[in-house]
Computed example of a mutant assay.
Amino acid sequence: MTEHPTQYPTALGASSRETITLLGHDLAHDVMGSVGFGELAFWLATQRRPDQGEVRVFEAVLAALADHGFTPTAIVTRLTWLSAPDSVQGALAAGLLGGGSRFLGVTEDCGRFLHDVVAALDELPADEVGWDAVALDVVRRRREAGAFVPGLGHHVHKDGDPRTPRLFEIAREEGRFGPHLALFEAIGRVHPEVLGRTLPLNGAGVCGAALADLDLPLELLRGFALLARTAGLIGQLAEELRHPVANDIFLSVDLNNRPVDPDPLPRSTEPRTT
């Protein structure tokens, strides 16, 4: 009796000798040329086909996060390409690996933060007054704990991040302005009362709120930010091919280093064990 090999079921891509199926559809005939990449990315993550309103909000998020100029992720991508021009995958990976708590990771951090607050509510507020009360309590508790509010503040757009009101607008137009965006907007209104100063709601944060309102998996929010940034990093490499600056960046550091005396770390006073 011949034993059958172990089965690995998947609703994603599967191939036979004649066809490729994806999400239950024929890839060549039903998907290619008919489904946009943003729609497909959403579909792959949720295994349900999004409606046009969801696609518009999702693709607005991708556009908002794609490229922000000479950020650390862009610089390291260009420098890695300078060092290893035969490895485009290495250059892209180098940039993506820098997606953390200061760049790109804020999208996930903010989405999770807002979700935790919303999930703990007995019922959702019915109006801005109710959301303001929730936001005021949340900001006060973060302040008392000595913690930052994710998505609040920006190192460049100190008078307001232009992406934020636009994403609010698009979500409202498409009927996708849910509790996460409502709470985030309320934080923007009330935080000066607690912090004594006005900070902008940043684009990475509003993207996290919008993705959470689309019911996308919280564990994947940073992945969507990295998906967007991949397009931006490809653009950075394409521009590096036409107008290279990586070598100038490298030389600006290498030719301007200054020798100083060693600054050794203090030794531990704890006894060493064997």
Rank of each mutant, 00 (worst) to 15 (best):
E193K: 15
V194Q: 12
L195K: 13
L195D: 06
G196K: 08
G196L: 09
G196H: 13
R197H: 07
R197D: 02
R197E: 01
T198S: 15
T198W: 07
L199W: 05
L199H: 02
L199N: 01
L199K: 10
P200T: 04
P200F: 13
P200E: 05
P200N: 13
P200C: 08
L201F: 07
L201W: 01
L201I: 03
L201A: 04
L201H: 08
L201N: 05
N202K: 10
N202E: 09
G203W: 03
G203M: 05
G203C: 10
A204V: 00
G205Y: 04
V206A: 00
V206C: 02
V206W: 07
C207Y: 08
G208Q: 06
G208W: 03
G208R: 06
G208E: 04
G208A: 10
A209T: 04
A209N: 11
A209K: 07
A210I: 08
L211F: 05
L211K: 03
L211T: 03
L211N: 10
A212S: 15
A212L: 11
A212Q: 13
A212F: 11
A212D: 01
A212N: 12
D213V: 08
D213Y: 12
D213N: 10
D213P: 11
L214I: 05
L214Y: 09
L214R: 00
D215P: 02
D215S: 14
D215Q: 14
L216N: 10
L216M: 09
L216F: 12
L216Q: 10
L216Y: 08
P217V: 04
P217Y: 12
P217C: 12
L218Y: 11
L218I: 14
L218G: 09
L218M: 14
E219S: 15
L220N: 11
L220S: 15
L220V: 04
L221M: 13
L221R: 12
L221P: 09
L221T: 09
R222W: 01
R222N: 11
R222F: 03
G223Q: 13
G223H: 14
G223V: 09
F224A: 04
A225S: 15
A225C: 07
A225M: 07
L226M: 15
L227D: 00
L227E: 02
L227G: 00
A228C: 06
A228M: 11
A228I: 00
A228R: 03
A228S: 11
R229G: 05
R229L: 05
T230N: 08
T230P: 00
T230Y: 04
T230G: 01
A231V: 03
G232M: 06
G232Y: 03
L233S: 04
I234S: 13
I234K: 07
I234R: 11
I234A: 15
I234N: 06
G235D: 13
L237I: 10
L237R: 02
A238P: 00
A238G: 01
A238L: 15
E239L: 14
E239C: 06
E239A: 12
E239H: 05
E240N: 00
E240Y: 00
E240T: 01
L241V: 13
L241K: 11
L241M: 14
R242Y: 01
